[in-house]
């Protein structure tokens, strides 16, 4: 028993408290971490719980996340069931009252977006469907602005002393973003109507924005990997619709896409999906720049 006490004491002294006065933001996904930094700048400290190469649905409540959650006074996540596997564990084990569900410090981006594909009925035989609707809202740049605006309001409420700074940062971001959107809109006009195959229903917001036509998913059902028989259906549908592009996120399995490419010559386009998803996408702007460049390259 003495040994144990000794170890406990050792732990306390080896890792001195790092409590800072500033706002600690726990961002579940890298896109929200980037947005929080745009708005909070030096007044906030942001921890991204996942990286761009990780599927935000399949994350473990690992020790470093428990430590980060314990310090958080703002939680900035997508919500809509995307983090259903790990956020409840972190919330119960490590989160303070300030960030619990319904608290001011608990900000769910999907609350501010009218979600697509809300299923009429849900059944697990349909795969890992989200009853709340499709949570991958960050692939449409218009949603980024809506969420940014709502988050700024929330942040100003939490940290009134810096409210004007947050508002100014938002205004700056918005004006840059609007210029970018014009630029992206010009490319989008050329992409309109392009038939595409996706791995998982993760591009629905992007497709709606750009007017891309999703023909079929390589996955059999959400969360169920491709099977040979399903791939035959994919091939038939893709040929029928004259699919030009197979869209993949950094964490989608490439095998099935490679097979389809070999069968019918469509191009595989790897898109960043979020900030840091592929090299050179360290900011939100770069992420969309690369997305549109890749799609433009894929369709030409």
């Amino acid at each position: 028993m003495k040994h144990l006490l000794f170890i406990c004491t050792l732990m306390v002294f080896c890792f001195p408290a790092m409590a800072k006065a500033e706002i600690n933001i726990f961002a579940c996904e890298p896109e929200w971490a980037a947005l929080a930094k745009e708005i909070g700048k030096d007044n906030v400290s942001v921890t991204a719980a996942t990286r761009g190469t990780e599927d935000p649905h399949h994350v473990r409540a690992k020790p470093s996340l428990l430590a980060a959650m314990r310090k958080a006074n703002v939680v900035f996540c997508t919500g809509a069931g995307l983090e259903a596997g790990w956020m409840p564990v972190l919330m119960q084990q490590a989160a303070g009252a300030a960030v619990q569900n319904g608290a001011v410090g608990n900000f769910m981006a999907s609350d501010y977006i009218a979600l697509m594909d809300k299923p009429q009925r849900v059944d697990r035989s349909m795969g890992d469907v989200h009853p709340e609707g499709n949570p991958h809202i960050q692939t449409d740049p218009r949603n980024i602005l809506v969420v940014g605006k709502a988050f700024t309001e929330r942040l100003s409420q939490l940290d009134a002393a810096h409210a004007s700074a947050y508002q100014a940062n938002l205004a700056d971001f918005t004006s840059r973003w609007q210029v970018d959107m014009k630029k992206w809109g010009a490319i989008a006009a050329k992409l309109r109507g392009t038939p595409v195959v996706v791995y998982h229903d993760e591009w629905n917001y992007l497709n709606r924005w750009l007017g891309l036509k999703e023909i079929i998913t390589l996955e059999v059902k959400p969360g169920i990997p491709p099977t040979p028989s399903h791939l035959q259906d994919v091939l038939a549908a893709s040929k029928n619709a004259d699919v030009k592009v197979i869209m993949l996120s950094p964490f989608d399995d490439e095998q099935a896409a490679e097979w389809l490419k070999g069968q019918m010559g469509a191009k595989i386009v790897k898109l960043p999906f979020t900030v840091g998803g592929i090299d050179g996408t360290d900011t939100l702007e770069a992420t969309f720049d690369r997305t549109l460049q890749a799609l433009e390259g894929g369709t030409s």
């Binding site: 809509a80 999907s110 609350d111 501010y112 977006i113 009218a114 979600l115 709340e132 609707g133 218009r142 949603n143 602005l145 809506v146 605006k149 709502a150 309001e153 959107m181 809109g185 989008a188 924005w209």
Partner: peptide
Amino acid sequence: EQAQQQAAVAASAAPVS
């Protein structure tokens, strides 16, 4: 069309769900 969509999105800064 794009402007219209943007306006519709911009108007919805309040929780929608």
